[in-house]
Structure formats: structure tokens, C-alpha cells
């Protein structure tokens, strides 16, 4: 449930910051102290909590661990989380690609404003992100009376959860692709057009293949956040058992019912998702570093 994306998540920045080995001039003990501090920090704030999650989840054996997933409420939570991600991720994929493409390849009025707006969900607290939907779609909200009249339930139902998730995962794809596409420039597309390709054809055969690995990487991060989002979803969910609880909300409910094994078992599912994401991300970075890092081979 990371709240914002650190600059290090963008490989473009990462690659340029990596110093060549020969530059290091510090003495041995300085280097080792720094490494020790970094490792201790990681162990304390990342590894230890992760180990705790799994230790608690298996505290009463594998049977109790598996029992946590046989509950109908757990099934409902898993299903809802998958549905939410299945709608939110493709939606942001389409939006992210188009937005990045427009911003990176064209100059138009309001371009900077658009970039700022795309970043907005990163800077707004998730609770606020949820509340804005309550204020718009709630019974007392802007569209409330109209929605009631037409018998449409948005918040405290699946559509509200999907909307809140789309909002908080909005920037992931666009933010990843903009620097990549800017770096690649418009030369190849222009060549395609000169050779008689239509706009759509050029986009499909030139632009898209150039960004595919960066895109996959972005979708991965977007999906992890979509499944893990707590704050915004909590506000619009209404916490109806078996109906509007996603996995993170289900974890909280179980914890508050003193059902610690089940709570951490479900949490381990989310932690597992994070680990898988991390592994695929690392593989992508290692295998396709050049493609992700803004087309270095071209220069």
C-alpha cells in the first residue's frame, strides 16, 4: 500500500544516477558503514514486517492458514479485488497511453496543466480521494438526487470502489510513459507517415512496440496499487460484509475481530502479490533495461 511513487521507481532516473565503479574514492570503512546503515534500515523497515506477516499467518499451522480462505467473505473480497483491478487497470492503460502519447509527441495549449492534473492523485491523500466521490455521488451530494431518482447506486457499491481505485491509480501508466516517449521523439512516427501510414497504423506499428516493456512495467505497478489500495476504497465501500469489502478492507475487519491468523493470512496474499510484482519488475529491468530506460540505444 505504498502512498506515492518514489523517484527510484522510474528507471530513467535510476539509470542516470548509477555511478561507474571507478568514481568511488571513499575509504573502506566509510563504504562499509554506509552499506551497514542501508542494510539495517532495510531489515528493520521492510524485511522484518514482511517476515512478521508470514510468521503470524502460519502461527497456528497450515490448516488455520488455509481456513482463512475458505470463508465466503474472503471469497467475496478476493473476487471484488480482482473485478476492481480488471476494470481499473485496462481503463488506466488506455488513458495512460493516450495521455502520454499526446503529451510526449505534441505541443498544445494546456499541456502543462494536463501533466499537473495527472499527478494530482499522487499528491492528494487517499481519504480525500474517497471523500470527493461521496460528495459527488452520495445521497446528499451533487448528483445524489438524480442518482436516487434513477435508482443508481455508485458509492457503497462496486462502481464507487472502481471509481476510487481508478482515481488513485490514475498517474501510474502516464507517468511511466511520458519520459520514455519524450526521449524517443517523433522521428520514427514522422517517417512512417511519410511512407504513407495512417495515424492509427503508425501508432500501432511504431509507437506501441517502442514502449511495450515500459508499458508492461507500468501496468504491473498500477495493478499492485489497484489491488492494495486501502484509504480511498475504505471511504466509499461502506464495509458491507460479503459485498463491498476488498482484500485490504477484509484484512482490517479480521484484525479488529481478533482473528489475527486469518487477518495475516489474507495480508500474506497481498504481500505475495507485492513480491511477485517485485520479481517481474526486476526481471523486466534486467532484461529490457534499455527499452524501459527511454530508448538509450538510439543515441
Amino acid at each position: 500500500m505504498s502512498e506515492a511513487i518514489a523517484p527510484a521507481d522510474f528507471p530513467a532516473a535510476e539509470a542516470s544516477l548509477r555511478p561507474p565503479a571507478s568514481v568511488v574514492t571513499e575509504t573502506g570503512w566509510v563504504r562499509w558503514t554506509l552499506i551497514a546503515v542501508a542494510v539495517a534500515f532495510l531489515a528493520l523497515f521492510l524485511v522484518l514486517p514482511l517476515v512478521t506477516v508470514f510468521a503470524q499467518a502460519f502461527a497456528k499451522g497450515i490448516g488455520a492458514y488455509l481456513a482463512a480462505f475458505s470463508e465466503p467473505d474472503a471469497h467475496a473480497a478476493i473476487k471484488l479485488t480482482l473485478i476492481t483491478a480488471a476494470i481499473a487497470v485496462p481503463f488506466n492503460l488506455v488513458f495512460g497511453v493516450t495521455a502520454a502519447w499526446a503529451i510526449a509527441k505534441f505541443q498544445f495549449w494546456g499541456r502543462d496543466l494536463l501533466v499537473t492534473l495527472i499527478d494530482l492523485p499522487f499528491s492528494v491523500s487517499p481519504v480525500v480521494s474517497g471523500l470527493i466521490y461521496v460528495l459527488v455521488f452520495g445521497s446528499q451530494g451533487l448528483l445524489g438526487p438524480w442518482l436516487i431518482e434513477h435508482d443508481i447506486q455508485i458509492i457503497f457499491a462496486v462502481p464507487g470502489i472502481v471509481l476510487a481505485t481508478i482515481f488513485v491509480t490514475f498517474p501510474f501508466v502516464a507517468r511511466q510513459l511520458i519520459p520514455l516517449m519524450q526521449e524517443q521523439g517523433t522521428v520514427e512516427e514522422e517517417a512512417a507517415l511519410t511512407l504513407g501510414a495512417t495515424g492509427w497504423h503508425a501508432f500501432r506499428t511504431v509507437t506501441l512496440p517502442n514502449i511495450r516493456w515500459g508499458l508492461l512495467y507500468a501496468v504491473l505497478l498500477c495493478n499492485a496499487r489497484a489491488m492494495g489500495e486501502f484509504g480511498a476504497v475504505s471511504v466509499v465501500s461502506g464495509h458491507i460484509r460479503g459485498l463491498t469489502n476488498t482484500l485490504p478492507l477484509h484484512v482490517e475487519i479480521l484484525y479488529n475481530e481478533y482473528n489475527f491468523v486469518a487477518s495475516f493470512a489474507v495480508a500474506s496474499l497481498l504481500a505475495g502479490l507485492a513480491l511477485v510484482t517485485l520479481v517481474i519488475k526486476s526481471v523486466l529491468e534486467w532484461r529490457y533495461a534499455d527499452d524501459i530506460a527511454a530508448g538509450a540505444r538510439r543515441h
Binding site: T98, A102, K105, G199, W200, F203
Partner: peptide
Amino acid sequence: MRFSNSLG
């Protein structure tokens, strides 16, 4: 660019 409109 020409192809921007229809796709947009």
C-alpha cells in the same frame, strides 16, 4: 500532426 484528431 494529422493523425491526432480521429484517434483522439
